[in-house]
Nucleic acid binder design. Structure first.
Length: 114
DNA sequence: ATATTGACCCGGA
DNA sequence: CTCCGGGCCAATA
């Protein structure tokens, strides 16, 4: 059988994000071996039908929720994250900033790896 | 076939 | 903080 499709790898990468943690769309793409395909990730998440998929752990690389405050999903995502102990305030995650760049990963405070 | 859109990203100014 | 410009690419119009 052929290897998993890009979509499958992306879904796996999302499922691999542990509760209490968040990741950016681009970061998910990188983890799935598809650097630069952040939009593809967004598209898949938008069209997902799996209720078990932790889509709420996926956000913008700057730690902001990818919805405008008036969008229904905005509240739900915030609530789900809060339920997992993620400190999200005004649509933005505190403390756990989605690692955006390589620099951030390399220069992250010691012990704070992911 | 081209044009626009979108749960995006990033570096620079 | 904002704004700009380039990259990315599948679905829609």
């Amino acid at each position: 059988m052929p290897g998993k499709s890009a979509a499958d790898r992306i879904m796996d990468a999302i499922r691999a994000v542990p509760p209490g943690q968040v990741a950016g769309y681009g970061e998910i793409a990188r983890r799935a071996g598809l650097p630069g395909r952040a939009r593809l990730v967004a598209r898949l998440v938008a069209g997902n039908d799996d209720p078990a998929l932790p889509w709420h752990r996926v956000m913008r690389s700057d730690g902001r929720i990818a919805f405008p405050p008036d969008h229904p999903h905005y509240a739900e995502q915030s609530q789900r994250l809060l339920a997992e102990g993620v400190d999200v305030k005004a649509g933005r995650v505190r403390g756990q900033r989605a690692a955006a760049t390589l620099d951030e990963l390399l220069w992250a405070p010691k012990g704070r790896r992911a």
